[in-house]
Design a protein around this nucleic acid. Structure first.
Length: 491
RNA sequence: GGCCCCAUCGUCUAGUGGCCUAGGACGUAGCCCUCUCAAGGCUAAAACACGGGUUCGAAUCCCGUUGGGGCCA
């Protein structure tokens, strides 16, 4: 391959209705390589004549790609529309003697296979029809006798220099004369892929390891067609926690499920890139631009990788925290409205406040979902006292109420609202005066204000909530505690 | 079963013959910070599957075994 040839890669999913994690990573690697080299990414939907793609079936894939920010330069092309080209190529293979018509019936082939099994040999087609006289073969085809077209695999071995695995080779006799066109005229996968890749002038085929055994067949076709095959890079598979191929059993398969769970596109892309690839230095948290800049096919590992959700969560938290309040607010806003925390108008009316709020809670959140739960109490309205918070800080309702009394007195007297340090100093002084530990007051206050056991610093919380909300929440909390104390019951 | 791929801490990985008493990250444990929880900082436990070679010297090269995975049947 001429090194000056501009890179052309392709992502060729079958229209399964969604983009799964493995496919997403393959797409990503192709995209990264195209962007890194300034090349072209072609999108091709690998439907077949048998199962033509419907709008609905490809939408899932396009949705996934869109969320990941993977854009393509050509396509989508549809494999099913190139059937004529595939058959044309098959015909030319027959003409050049690289393929032949096979008239063996299903029964005959089954018998061959059984005989092979009985002899404890692995089955490959015997090549019986290959020995047929050319004129006889042509006559039978002309007579309309049902037949497939088989590739005449030559003796020897087929090898290639895989970018990921190094030299990889197959003994041709283990391949056997494979079918390229079925008896109904439908081109077989390996032929279709090869012809399409050829027509689209693909220079690098970057795909999953599960295609390794297809590669020798495709290389054979390329050569028979008189062209040099492209560069192959077989990327190892992504495994589930039990080390088997990632599947539905392991939770979400469609990448959009991760979007819906509150992961950031950038974080997910970063995570996917790190599955089977590394920059070579110690960088892990990387932006899209950094990934594009650092990505090379040579640095892809040959070993399959287990999908580790915990690392994804951590990475997401990292990306979340690195966004500014304003940037994150834009992403988070629909999450708040969808969760019913506030309307779009309400957030719009307090845009700057909302951005500050997001900045306040982001380090405590790993997903957008966390962000909503953290931010929720800052909006007006009643809060729900969560069981774990009550258990931890309001175990004793009387003591809790005592602490809140101090808090209430403090809030009523506070005249430097918003000045964090001054607020803290005053509250501590007042707590001292009343003989109540300041820590108790603050913790009790946290439950009263947020209903949760986790929140930002209590003064930041108060400042962000505003005096009115704080007053309301304190009154409500005291009423709740009083009711519980007379009740004598625990929750 | 045949063919092919793979083999470093639980997980993701760095490592391409000496820089390795094997580095980083997630997770785990502890400490610091501290009004909670995160974040942040520090520390700890934790790996070269096994056996043979090659070499002055192997995580690194070769062979075999074992184990995992994929494709086909």
């Amino acid at each position: 391959m001429n090194p000056a040839t501009p890179v052309r890669v392709r992502f060729a999913p079958s229209p399964t209705g969604f983009l799964h994690v493995g496919g997403a990573r393959t797409a990503l690697f192709n995209w990264l390589w195209a962007r890194h080299t300034g090349g072209v990414l072609v999108l091709r939907i690998e439907d077949t004549d048998a199962e033509r793609s419907t709008e609905e079936m490809i939408r899932g894939i396009l949705d996934g790609l869109e969320w990941l920010g993977i854009d393509w330069d050509e396509g989508p092309h549809y494999q099913s529309r190139h059937g004529d080209r595939h058959r044309e190529a098959a015909a030319s293979l027959v003409r050049s003697g690289s393929a032949y018509a096979c008239f063996c019936t299903v029964e005959e082939l089954a018998a061959e296979r059984e005989a092979a099994i009985a002899r404890k040999e692995s089955y490959v087609y015997s090549g019986r029809c290959r020995r047929l006289d050319a004129s006889e073969s042509a006559r039978r085809v002309a007579d309309g006798e049902p037949h497939t077209i088989r590739f005449a695999v030559p003796a020897g071995e087929t090898a290639w220099e895989d970018v990921v695995h190094g030299r990889t080779s197959f003994e041709n006799r283990t391949i056997g004369d494979f079918i390229v066109v079925r008896s109904d005229g439908a081109p077989v996968y390996n032929l279709a892929v090869t012809v399409d890749d050829l027509d689209m002038r693909i220079t690098h085929v970057v795909r999953g390891d599960d295609h390794i055994s297809n590669t020798p067949k495709q290389i054979l076709i390329y050569r028979a067609l008189g062209v040099e095959p492209p560069v192959f890079a077989h990327v190892p598979l992504i495994l589930g926690p039990d080390k088997s191929k990632l599947s539905k059993r392991h939770g979400a398969v469609a990448v959009t499920a991760y979007r819906d769970q509150g992961y950031l596109s950038d974080a997910f892309v970063n995570f996917l890139a790190l599955l089977g690839w590394s920059a070579g230095d110690d960088r892990e948290v990387m932006t899209r631009a950094e990934l594009v800049e650092a990505f090379t096919l040579e640095r892809i590992t040959g070993k399959s990788a287990v999908f580790d959700v915990e690392k994804l969560e951590w990475l997401n938290g990292q990306h979340l925290s690195r966004l500014s309040g304003a940037e994150l607010a834009a992403v988070a806003r629909p999450w708040f409205t969808r969760a019913g925390v506030a309307s779009d108008e309400e957030i719009e009316a307090r845009g700057e406040w909302f951005e500050d709020l997001i900045a306040l809670v982001k380090t405590r959140s790993r997903t957008l979902h966390d962000l909503v739960e953290q931010g929720r109490p800052f909006f007006p309205g009643p809060v729900e006292y969560q069981a774990d918070a009550v258990e931890k800080f309001w175990k004793d309702p009387v003591a809790a109420d005592e602490a809140l009394t101090v808090a209430q007195q403090y809030a009523a007297a506070e005249d430097r609202w918003g000045e964090l340090e001054a607020m803290e100093a005053r509250l501590r002084a007042l707590a001292d005066e009343r003989g109540v530990p300041a820590g108790k007051v603050m913790q009790s206050l946290r439950v009263a204000l947020t209903g949760q056991r986790v929140s930002p610093g209590i003064f930041e919380t108060m400042a962000a909530m505003g005096r009115e909300v704080v007053d309301e929440r304190l009154a409500a909390a005291r009423a709740w505690l009083a009711a519980r104390a007379t009740d004598g019951r625990t929750s």
